[in-house]
């Protein structure tokens, strides 16, 4: 899919991946998430737990919400909190919040006891976002995080992302819309026939 792609990212900064449809933004994120093995090359997370692979210190927020309609909203979230292993990292300090706090943060606290089947698409998206808050992990991989969100939820999302960066976390996100993030690097993916393959390095 891509060649000669290398970048490094420091704690507290975000990488925004842009590019045309089908260029491989999602594949890049899935590779970083360990869901697609890279044909060669490596992904390293320095400063994390040494024996834990990078994908197990990352949250993946993809197109699918992983919400079970038959479970209540709180049951959904509680499961992910219990199931996902938190990944503490030295330069990163965010405590995991309880499911109810997370739901309140994203403004769907009143739905906690309802079956998730009753939620609208945007509400399901927000529920899925709560997953990132209830287990503390330093890296957030977000594929089109603003899709299906209204303007107010988008603002909330940006606040959450900025808070995550401020606490020393990393964010890699693929997006089409402009995100007002604090410390942003751009990675623009282009078709392979372009002579210079896009490579951007992090600021120190």
């Amino acid at each position: 899919m891509f060649e000669d792609l290398s970048f490094s990212l420091n704690g507290g900064s975000a990488l925004v991946v842009t590019g045309a449809n089908g260029i491989g933004k999602s594949s890049l994120l899935r590779t970083l998430a360990g869901l697609v093995p890279p044909s060669h090359g490596s992904i390293r997370l320095e400063g994390g737990a040494a024996d834990t692979p990078p994908e197990e210190q990352a949250h993946y927020f993809g197109h699918q919400d992983a919400v079970k309609p038959a479970l209540s909203v709180e049951e959904n979230l509680q499961f992910w909190q219990n199931f996902t292993a938190p990944a503490p990292a030295p330069g990163f300090s965010v405590r995991s919040v309880t499911p109810l706090e997370a739901l309140d943060t994203l403004g769907i606290g009143h739905t906690a006891q309802l079956p998730a089947a009753f939620l609208s698409a945007g509400q399901k998206r927000r529920l899925s976002l709560c997953r990132l808050l209830v287990t503390s992990r330093p890296v957030w991989l977000m594929d089109e995080p603003t899709s299906a969100l209204d303007r107010r939820s988008e603002t909330q999302l940006l606040e959450l992302m900025n808070a995550h960066l401020a606490a020393g976390g990393l964010i890699v996100t693929a997006t089409h819309s402009d995100l007002a993030l604090a410390d942003v690097l751009q990675l623009h993916l282009q078709a392979a026939d372009a002579a210079a393959l896009p490579v951007e390095d992090a600021l120190p």
Binding site: T52, E55, H59, G62, T84, A85
Partner: peptide
Amino acid sequence: DDGTLDLMLMAGR
């Protein structure tokens, strides 16, 4: 189908 499996693979279990 709903993306849960991806997250289970990343859950560190």
